[in-house]
Design a protein around this nucleic acid. Structure first.
Lengths: 345, 345
DNA sequence: TTGTACGCGTTATCAT
DNA sequence: ATGATAACGCGTACAA
């Protein structure tokens, strides 16, 4: 009685296993009455086919996996909802796979691919420097989302914003408001993901406007725990304040961190934006509803998710080769940024 | 070359399949040299064992599944991290399974149980009125988290706060601050989950203090999309304002909704807390870092997650029967609540 | 220490 | 329309 199988159902109904299989899988060649009888027995005994055995046999499985690195990143959760809807609308099975911070997402994908007979994969987040040899091992189409690869790698499908450009955009905006000393809250020093790109944009903005880059204005994330969280932003901001850093604006490479930074600044007695302007990146609800509302770069998350699914299916249907889709971010002029105070002597 | 199997590896190495199997699974009876040779071939050909076939055969799999309903609920994401750590610390495999809003979590659990040979299940969120017959079909131990079942059902393991009590606590706090007209932002009208419990607490608080219950002060969630989101709280608050509701405080049954409500109130020209006090429930980072910081009931999410894992393992090891663990919430007196303004004529 | 052969639960092919 | 049977890829007795 422990685990009921297809054989048990067959025996109970006095039919062969293949008939049961046919009944379950809506095969054409089956008598309506026997089918009815079988379905009833299945319901009664609460029989659930063993998926492992199923996948082992099945020729095709029509499932798409979404691999998300760092599921705590609230920016992804919105996209996940959309991805799920879109994938299910295409009558495919949606599988959400969480990847640890210390796990290699490509290895996980490789395993999942064999295990689930995947038709395609969508990566959310993760490293931008995945070695080509590893990615090439994947035998099903895949789309890298939220991570903008090196320009040279045009053979992979990606959906993202131009992180360098957008980052430059918002820093130039800050500069246009008179800010010259802009503190930067970024990812870890050895980051290989979006952090380096956004830092690059920061530097480019300074160069373009002739402002000298000052390493002291940077604060790297030291520990990866709670990456891109409000708490992290708070701690990093406090650290900068404690080391007596001088700045008129703060740019955090994620909205969550920006909001954490705001609290640290306020606790230090500074008003936002009167005493210090704050800008983020992502355009999350959190920033939109924050007070003051956050100035940020809004990524069209929903459209990006839809585009990723569409691109993936185009590749599956061989209708399209891997393409790089770059979305434009929107500069949201929130209440958290104002013109820089006159330079204090 | 499409899909390499254990046989291929065996043939390549000139050994039997069982030897390859032994090499992979760290069996004792194997020559170090041959093992070395095999592992090298596995790495070279990037062989990944088919998990379906594996699970089909394996006697025990040491995996725990966490089923989360509505993965968009940011309250859960924190708990998920802790659950993962705790489960992996016990050398068990952690499987995160997302359950759709319109999916029955018990059905999903039933399927997963057969598919993955689970050792145990932790439910995050979900309905409180799961029929007993369905839950009893589960043959592995499970813990219901975040959902406080009816007192009668002491046969199931649960980890939660006492939603009714805590809800009453915060409403009584508002009342103690002089508020009598307290608007309530809650879940859908036919909710079977935490919303009914928290609404119950609201009513009890009114009764205990002799304040008349006024249906007009309630706002139910009409559509389930984006449940418990900031956006939802914003929309619901706007609706109340438009219908000219009169109140001095707002209580939203989730922090996210409270924050959304704040924006709506501000857009209506009201200052928080001067013109209107706001309280939430959950104790999420979002509220803690919000400005003004949110008055709320803080659930000890990390401790609850740890307790859930501990309880589950106790049950697996037969050390304990199903128990109901109730945590105490903490009333966080944030900046979003102040004494009620003098009654306007 | 190693290889052979069987069975896990299912679907697909072939008979009937 | 239905039933027997051969795979699917792996782990594991058992034999060698």
């Amino acid at each position: 009685m422990e685990n009921i199988t297809i054989k048990d159902i067959a025996r109970i109904c006095g039919v062969g296993v293949s008939t049961v299989s046919r009944a379950m899988n809506n095969h054409p060649d089956i008598n309506e009455e026997t089918k009815e009888k079988i379905m009833q027995a299945i319901a009664e005994y609460d029989y659930v086919p063993n998926n492992s055995a199923r996948n082992l046999k099945r020729s095709e499985a029509k499932t798409i996996a979404v691999l998300v690195k760092n599921i705590g990143n609230t920016f992804f959760t919105g996209m996940i909802q959309v991805l799920e809807e879109e994938i299910q609308a295409k009558k495919y099975t949606f599988v959400l796979q969480h990847v640890d911070e210390d796990q290699d997402e490509v290895s996980v994908a490789l395993t999942l691919e064999k295990e689930k007979r995947l038709k395609g994969i969508i990566f959310l987040g993760g490293s931008a420097d995945n070695p080509k040899e590893r990615l090439d091992k994947l035998s099903v189409p895949f789309v890298l989302t939220t991570v903008h690869l090196d320009e040279k790698w045009t053979e992979y499908a990606t959906v993202s914003v131009d992180d360098v450009l957008e980052s430059r955009k918002i820093v130039e905006y800050l500069i246009s408001k008179g800010h010259k000393k802009i503190a930067l809250l970024c990812g870890s020093r050895d980051d290989t993901s979006i952090s380096v790109l956004r830092v690059k944009g920061y530097r480019e903005a300074l160069e373009n406007t002739g402002i000298e880059f000052n390493e002291d204005l940077l604060c790297y994330m030291e520990t990866p725990d709670g990456a891109y969280s409000m708490r992290k932003g708070y701690e990093m901001m406090r650290e900068m304040l404690e080391r007596g850093c001088d700045f008129t604006a703060v740019y955090a490479i994620a909205d969550n961190m920006a909001i954490g930074a705001c609290r640290a600044l306020r606790e230090d007695g500074r008003n936002i934006p009167a005493d210090c302007s704050v800008a983020g990146f992502d355009g999350m609800d959190c920033g939109r509803f924050y007070s003051p509302s956050l100035t940020t770069i809004s990524q069209p998350a929903d459209d990006m998710a839809k585009a990723a699914v569409k691109l993936l299916f185009d590749m599956i249907k061989k209708k399209s080769r891997a393409r790089q889709i770059v979305f434009e971010g929107e500069l949201i002029q929130g209440e958290s940024v104002t013109t820089a105070p006159v330079q204090r002597a």
